[in-house]
Design a protein around this nucleic acid. Structure first.
Lengths: 156, 156
DNA sequence: ATGCAAGTTAAAGTCAGGTTCATGTCAAGG
DNA sequence: CCTTGACATGAACCTGACTTTAACTTGCAT
């Protein structure tokens, strides 16, 4: 039996569908950890792949890397995380997604009624002044994608 | 009857709920236009308020300023835009919002089924690998808010 | 033992959508 | 006339999530 079959950064990057630079960045941000070879090169455990999957999923839900770091820090340090651990972390996303969907739906419905009038009043229009959640962030609150925009996605 | 009752930048900013710096920025980005006084100060027509309302609404739907600029450029140059003009522009947002809601809903439903398993497989999990639309943008495609994040909204 | 792909670092660049600053000008009331 | 607040400009700065570059080192196959 060999040691732990550790992955060099390029291989991990390939398997995770990320650029090596992203992995170094994640490491600098405290999202993942690595051991080093005698010569100083990074070697990753397989478990990091699952962590990266979590990171990606969390990003899709709209969390910042800092929020993700914080969530990951609640995992048990000793034993390796179980399914239940991961499930606990992702459970809280549900409500967040529900909120987001509700906000979008409200915007869409406001749009439907606005199409008829073409008003776009700064004060009254549901489109330019969506819901209270938005208003709380202040006027000019923009929200939403960044992907799903025409801005051409960058590839790892 | 006086001339055209033009607004200086501070007043327009106040009425639109934006910072003067944002208005200068928008002007530099080709979203709005101004005339100048003899001394070089900006004076805005009232119609600019409606344009700004459109900009804000479009941002809420997730469009970039460049996309908004492009949309605004399809307005008639001669006559001032009618309700129908504005309605035409906003009609296309409907589909966009529908897509976004669908994507989010899919993500949420994937989450619901994933909570049970805690799998987070990079290849198979609906959470880390949502829908095809996402896949088209490439692995690691993140999407969503930016507002609704803890990042503390900045105020005009 | 050697050649070269793959790895290392720090620092700088990127993009969006602005804000802040320094320095100088305009406009209007008293 | 003079002061004062609003305005102008260009440049620098900001956040987030990375990528790119430059200069150098490792590790593995031949």
């Amino acid at each position: 039996m060999k040691g732990a079959d550790l992955l060099p950064i390029g291989e991990l990057a390939h398997r995770a569908g990320l650029a090596p630079s992203a992995l170094r960045y994640y490491e600098s941000a405290g999202l993942i950890a690595s051991t080093r070879t005698g010569g100083g090169q990074r070697r990753y455990e397989r478990a990091v792949l699952r962590r990266l999957a979590f990171v990606r999923a969390a990003q899709n839900v709209g969390l910042s890397l800092e929020e993700i770091r914080s969530a990951l820090s609640t995992l048990p340090a000793q034993r390796s995380p179980t399914r239940a651990d991961w499930a606990r972390l992702s459970r809280s996303w549900q409500a967040r997604l529900d909120e987001q969907i509700a906000g979008l739906t409200q915007l869409r419905d406001g749009l439907t009624s606005c199409i008829g009038c073409g008003c776009l009043s700064l004060k009254r229009c549901a489109l330019s002044n969506p819901n209270d959640a938005m208003a709380a962030v202040g006027p000019g609150a923009r929200f939403l994608p960044s992907v799903l925009r025409r801005t051409s996605g960058r590839q790892a």
